[in-house]
């Protein structure tokens, strides 16, 4: 039915050397998970100054909301929701994808008579959410291949020439 074993890595090798630039408020775990998955996909990571491309991860937000309550208005269920914004640019600041907000969420049963245990469970869930969000970020890099980079570079070149043309 058309399925074959995967033959190509998730992220095109054209997108290297790549720098992963995480803003201060992005948890280290999320940033490391992205780096790890990129390295597994054989993408060479370099610090920002030496890289040709930059993956910028920022505006991290984590929300915890009661999604169900007991009769005494205590939370019966919490939903965790992590959101992050990503941008991919070339070293000379040509955007390769539309900046995108990614989010992932998970729900867990809460019990106000077992607060510490639920705190442990929440911490474990947050790690899973970091891994899932890292995977979503990798998915967003997939469409960037050699000819898209070339096409966007030319478009930017053209735009820059048009800008400088009329007044010269």
């Amino acid at each position: 039915c058309g399925f074959q074993l995967r033959g190509a890595p998730p992220v095109s090798s054209a997108l290297q050397p790549l720098a992963v630039d995480c803003a201060d408020n992005v948890p280290g775990q999320l940033c490391d998970a992205v780096r790890e998955q990129l390295e597994l996909g054989r993408i060479e990571l370099k610090p920002a100054e030496e890289a040709d491309f930059v993956l910028r991860i920022g505006k991290f937000r984590q929300e915890r909301r009661a999604s169900a309550i007991t009769l005494r208005a205590a939370a019966a269920e919490y939903t965790l929701r992590h959101t992050v914004n990503i941008e991919v640019l070339t070293a000379d600041n040509i955007p390769l994808i539309e900046p995108a907000d990614l989010n992932t969420s998970e729900t867990y049963r809460y019990d106000e008579s077992n607060v510490l245990a639920k705190q442990r469970e929440e911490e474990a869930l947050r790690e899973q959410l970091h891994d899932r969000l890292a995977q979503q970020i990798i998915f967003r890099l997939a469409p960037i291949d050699e000819d898209r980079i070339e096409r966007l570079r030319q478009e930017a070149e053209q735009a820059r020439n048009e800008e400088t043309e009329p007044s010269s």
């Binding site: 729900t107 049963r109 077992n114 245990a117 442990r120 469970e121 869930l125």
Partner: peptide
Amino acid sequence: DFDTTIRSFSFDQLFQRNRFSGG
């Protein structure tokens, strides 16, 4: 029982070896 409870169900929980959270 200092900090332990039974993990609530989620799909990822199928791949956890310990059905209890905490220690």
